[in-house]
């Protein structure tokens, strides 16, 4: 998994498929980074992702719980239609911002 930390903001570059198998590793690594760098904003970058199941929703919800305690936010960027559908259906869109990029 690729991560980038800029000040108090963590960007997680998600893999092609987000399922229970790689969600476990992602949670562990992200939590360590959040803890160490006093992260307040978490950005999930779905650029490479074409599959996500409810385990991915669990990852988002869990990170939201952590950063919301200190007034932080969770964002999603580059989410394709399928990923948006999964997020909308799960209701996770109520707690996170989805960044809509301009369509060219």
């Amino acid at each position: 998994m690729k991560y980038q930390v800029q000040e108090n903001c963590l960007t997680i570059y998600l893999p092609r498929e987000v399922d229970h198998h790689n969600a476990e590793e992602m949670k562990r690594e992200a939590d360590a980074v959040i803890d160490r760098n006093h992260i307040k904003y978490v950005i999930f970058d779905f650029e490479k992702t074409d599959f996500m199941d409810s385990s991915g929703i669990g990852v988002i919800m869990g990170r939201y719980k952590t950063v919301s305690l200190i007034g932080g936010e969770v964002w999603a960027v580059h989410a394709n239609e399928r990923i948006r559908k999964i997020m909308t259906l799960s209701g996770v869109t109520k707690i996170m911002q989805i960044y809509e990029e301009e369509r060219i």
Binding site: A23, K27, D53, S54, S55, I57, G58, V59, M61, G62, I86, L89, S90, V92
Partner: peptide, 14 residues
């Protein structure tokens, strides 16, 4: 506590 969303069956049904 393990960040399970509880959406598994809901997704199957959807």
């Amino acid at each position: 506590e393990q960040d399970r969303s509880g959406m598994g069956f809901a997704f199957m049904e959807a």
